[in-house]
Amino acid sequence: MVAPLQHIIAVAGLLFSIGVLGVLFRRNAIIVFMSIEIMLNAVNLAFVAFSRYHGNIDGQVFVFFSMTLAAAEVAVGLAIMVALFRNLKTTDISKISSLKY
């Protein structure tokens, strides 16, 4: 293996944490969305690393499905964003809070 498993998983963990920070702190919906993509990719990386570690192809198949899902999610998500922007003239999620108590 190209590097110890622990290192690869650590990279995946850091990547995921970066995504979390983006989701929690950014207000631009598009960037929040990108952060989610980063988190997804962190998980994919962990999958691939474990797949290599165990010599088992199933992990990579899972990544394949995860990518399919990401593609669908991005398409729908961005469509929602377009619709949202069209109606509210903003992508700032701290200003979108009409669904509250």
Partner: peptide, 17 residues
Amino acid sequence: LRLMQSGLIQHYASLLL
């Protein structure tokens, strides 16, 4: 408990986390 429903997605995300 109603007050938790702020409508702000990041509040929800933080609780999820």
